[in-house]
């Protein structure tokens, strides 16, 4: 629990962060709330030589109505997402999922951008973003680009946000009347999910994404396809683990997780349809 030595750079704007990334290259890591990066550093599983602290950039903490979607600044704390009235009315699942992250002290420090950029398959918010069909804005030396959530998670703790870019905004489509459910199965209240399911059902369209069922946050494509083809909940849920490669750890082996995914997808689809 003692991190290796590193240099610390504090920046006050996204532009300064991009410049610092350009200067320090791959050896640098961005730190927002620090709740994903610092534990890795304390275990010495990550030893960046430079930590660029973006946590104090003032203008990246916001939740704005942007017409057909809600735009959320990357440094918005989980607690703000959890309690925001616009989100609660327009994208209630996201507010709910934010309330399921860690414990209150984590939610007061951790940020939505940090959680999503970390790309942890066991995290709650990436799966919610996938199910909602959201996107993110990545700012780099050449300006901004929008990355759909479906293209964002590329490998274990890896995303399509390049090493010289910074995730600055999260966009989630408004879905005020949609049915939704977030099923988080964990062993203690503050734990990551052993398996989780985010499901949205809106005018016949379905978004279903899974937590901790593979190396990345992942869309349950087989489930979505089956629902699109008219399958009932039971039949669709039976496909929950198709194409998945769940981890093997003390919380369960892959077979157990595959079963759990089926149970939880069924529960999620049932609740989302209710």
């Amino acid at each position: 629990m003692i991190p290796a030595a590193f240099d610390y750079v504090e920046v006050d704007s996204a532009e300064a962060a991009i410049a610092a990334l350009g200067q320090h290259g791959d050896e640098a890591k961005l730190m927002a709330g620090g709740h994903s990066l610092l534990p890795l550093m304390k275990f010495r599983l990550a030893s960046p030589s430079v930590v660029i602290d973006i946590g104090r950039i003032a203008d990246l903490s916001y939740i704005n109505d942007a017409g057909d979607h809600v735009a959320i600044g990357a440094l918005t704390k989980h607690r703000a997402v959890e309690t925001n009235e616009l989100l609660k009315s327009q994208v209630p699942m996201l507010a709910h999922v934010a309330s399921q992250v860690g414990d209150p002290s984590v939610r007061h420090r951790g940020t939505i951008g940090g959680s999503i950029a970390h790309g942890d398959p066991a995290s709650d918010l990436p799966a919610a973003l996938l199910a909602l069909g959201g996107s993110v804005v990545a700012k780099g030396p050449n300006g901004d680009r929008v990355i759909p959530a479906a293209d964002l998670f590329t490998g274990f703790l890896e995303t399509a946000v390049a090493s010289d870019e910074m995730l600055t905004e999260i966009r989630v489509p408004k879905a005020a009347g949609a049915g939704w459910s977030y099923q988080k199965f964990n062993r203690r209240a503050q734990d990551w999910a052993s398996v989780g399911v985010a499901a949205v059902r809106n005018n016949g369209a379905s978004g279903v994404a899974l937590v901790n069922m593979g190396p990345t946050p992942v869309v349950a494509t087989a489930v979505q396809d089956a629902l699109a083809s008219g399958a009932d909940v039971e039949a669709a849920a039976a496909l929950a683990a198709d194409g998945m490669s769940p981890p093997d750890d003390l919380n369960g082996d892959p077979a157990y997780r595959a079963h759990l995914a089926q149970v939880l997808v069924k529960r999620a689809l049932t609740e989302a349809a209710a």
Binding site: D103, R187, R188, A189, Q190, D191, D249, L250
Partner: peptide
């Protein structure tokens, strides 16, 4: 329900941190 040190065949503890060694909290 929660706790137990788990070892592999080489005698390595599989859950030496509070991330994996599940001490319950008041919420449980």
């Amino acid at each position: 329900l929660w706790e137990g040190a788990s070892y592999d065949a080489d005698g390595n503890c599989r859950n030496p941190s509070l991330l994996d060694y599940l001490v319950p909290s008041a919420a449980e």
